[in-house]
Design a protein around this nucleic acid. Structure first.
Lengths: 240, 240
DNA sequence: CGTCTCCTTGAACAGCGTCAATAGCCGTGG
DNA sequence: CCACGGCTATTGACGCTGTTCAAGGAGACG
């Protein structure tokens, strides 16, 4: 995938940049971003990128691969708070408050490639132009809106509705990054991840997924998902 | 309660100011706040203060009374996202992004008294000093952290845990406003509100509350709650 | 004293969890 | 090439947690 992690040209050839938080100013800001990038590194699956309660001075931009924010809870329980897809920033809260200490941890879900920046540098990038800081604000609000939606899902939707909502949220976010082709996209989540995100058990997730398949709403192979009936899935998401 | 809503001296006599988001600079900022206040008004129970999807130019500071953010969902379902207590700002997201359009509505839970400001004025107040803007940032992060906690509650705790968490969250927030006396505080929520906040039904909330009473963890009379065994309740909140 | 709102309680039920057994996939090593 | 172990998906039986529906009670207020 990444032939040479130290390649100077990585930023120019980054097909994500224009569709991320840098979007509105990427063509202008890119040299600046490139100059401030401290490292580009590969991390394997299942590694903790950010431990809970740490106050990291670095911030990562996910060049490829998936990760997730989660909380460990008593009794071996785990709640996944959100998934991070290519182009996302880890811990973007630290752009608002320095020395931010997250109430959750971040772990890689697949092998990931991370571009590392100093928090202070990334802040300067974000404040470089009014459009850029506006974009950060919008991202913060979008994130908050997603949290609200997830609370409503977990509180008041059944298993079908929650899982359909999750699939549609991921499809929407991936589409904005141009990572959806013909309603199909990379889908590296195990059923256990879906369970931990939706507050269900993997056994029950399995039952729901096979029903969504049987009713021709989705086509799910390992690591890849295709939405066959978008309207039907949206109906399940809304009514479930 | 409020004898004269137009009294000039309201801000000076406001016992909340020092413990709200204005906290760090209240003694200095208060004249400024007072000068910019557009109105002080009373609203009765059950009124929509902010409709979903509106983009209000006014922001309210709750002088007294409670309110809540919520989403209406298909099938008559409702999810309460958070409660607003005296001293809270409605819609503080609009301090980050102007023309903010909330993905939820806000309704009064008791009669409330609101101090009204223009969003732009309130922004200026918040940016008046570094301490003050820092306080806004901390408030935003605290709000986000609460949303994360609620997702974990709804996804991975049983009814006892969710309700205990809710009680403890409210106690903590009220205590910071000096509204807890001897572990007791105003508690205007109906069981239906608790149900809509915790993703349960009011029938089941009733059963859990009577158990919390029977086990001597709380004492709950209409509109007033006392925590009898804080450690015990925290244990239920954590393990449940 | 009647009405309204909210709390309380019971009985039947269902969605989802728990536990466990089986099966498929894949990389590894012999 | 095959055997093996590890991981994930699948499926079934069973039961608990919380829902649904409904009825009754208690306090507030005009």
């Amino acid at each position: 995938m990444i032939e040479n992690l130290n390649s100077d040209s990585a930023c120019e050839r980054c097909e994500l940049g224009a569709f991320t938080i840098y979007g509105p100013t990427y063509s202008v800001a890119m040299p600046n971003i490139k100059a401030r990038r401290l490292a580009i590194q590969r991390v394997e699956t299942g590694k903790i990128l950010i431990p809970e309660g740490s106050a990291p001075e670095k911030i990562y931009s996910i060049r490829s691969g998936w990760a997730f924010r989660y909380k460990e809870m008593p009794g071996g329980r785990r709640q996944i708070l959100s998934f991070l897809i290519p182009g996302d920033l880890t811990l973007f809260e630290s752009l608002i408050v320095s020395k931010f200490s997250p109430p959750y941890a971040v772990k890689s879900l697949t092998p990931v490639v991370l571009c590392t920046f100093a928090v202070g540098d990334m802040r300067q990038i974000m404040n470089a132009t009014p459009e850029q800081s506006r974009e950060l604000e919008v991202a913060v609000l979008g994130y908050i809106a997603n949290l609200h939606r997830r609370i409503a899902d977990l509180g008041r939707r059944n298993a079908h509705g929650r899982i359909a909502q999750l699939i549609l949220e991921l499809e929407g976010r991936l589409a904005r990054r141009r990572l959806v082709k013909n309603h199909a996209f990379e889908f590296p989540l195990r059923q256990e991840h879906i369970a931990d995100a939706t507050g269900l058990t993997s056994a029950h997730v399995n039952r729901v997924l096979s029903e969504l398949r049987k009713t021709q709403l989705i086509d799910l192979e390992p690591r890849r998902l295709r939405i066959l009936d978008h309207a039907g899935l949206a109906r399940v998401a809304e009514e479930g």
